[in-house]
Design a binder for these strands. Sequence first.
DNA 1: TATAATAGTTTCGTTACTCAACTATTCTCC
DNA 2: GGAGAATAGTTGAGTAACGAAACTATTATA
Lengths: 148, 148
Amino acid sequence: MPNPTSSPILIDKFWESVPSAWRQTRSQIRRIAVEKFQMTEEQFQVLRRIRKGSASVSALAEASQTSRSAVSKAVDALVRRGLVTRSQDPRDRRNVPLALTDEGQRVMDAIFVEAEAWLSARFEHLSPEELETLLQGMETLRKAFSNP
Amino acid sequence: MPNPTSSPILIDKFWESVPSAWRQTRSQIRRIAVEKFQMTEEQFQVLRRIRKGSASVSALAEASQTSRSAVSKAVDALVRRGLVTRSQDPRDRRNVPLALTDEGQRVMDAIFVEAEAWLSARFEHLSPEELETLLQGMETLRKAFSNP
DNA sequence: TATAATAGTTTCGTTACTCAACTATTCTCC
DNA sequence: GGAGAATAGTTGAGTAACGAAACTATTATA
């Protein structure tokens, strides 16, 4: 059952929190990834997801809610830099399974430590209760925006 | 006091929720604002904030966590389209107070109805408890990312 | 009064996309 | 088995969304 009365407040909170949080984070990832590892934020996201197990252009696009062509280009750059490999699926040759190289793994670990440190700093002055609230809120946000 | 144990999970949830939610929303705003009102998402955000009371380039940049140059360009486009006016502050002529024109107000109302409807649709299959969780989580997110 | 700080703009460049068209493969169903 | 529909991925062209640095104009400060 819809809950119309809460929507305007909720929507306002959404506008006031999500875009700003994301802009700041992306900007920081750019600083780390671009300056230290000559990599764009989009490429970082692709690496991150491959490490988590997503292993095709379509799966990455679906997970990141972006277009296949954007992912394809990011993957291409990563392959050219030797961080990701494309292989073949003998069962369906349309599929192009992706995997991190050792170098890709190493770079990813290094970036992730820095990104995690920065995000942790955002969260470290929150109380345990607030951290719990945030955790649950983000899970609900994910649910609300996961396509059925 | 920092709470290091919860961080990796929290950070993972952040990555899985915020970027995707924001990309979907921005993409939708683009569809509405660009196709129906010939306006970019950035311009929409500027209009939205002016309507809420932010009335200078610097205030807008601060509120949106973006650069003054980006805001300046968006404002310029809105002024050229007759949706926003620049005026003068006789007390400090460096300030350029901004305001919506009647047309700007009208366009903003129209866009907002559509944007709100789309966001509401995302939220409408959540339970009242989940809506509350989400509201509190977003407030905490805002707090975590508001610069001290 | 020098100079520091602030508000805003402009220029130039890069990143982050999107859309449409394309190839290559596999599925479907008659 | 063959014609089309569907799927995976790529490519090209174009635009939106930024950011850094240099600039003007104005006001504060020492």
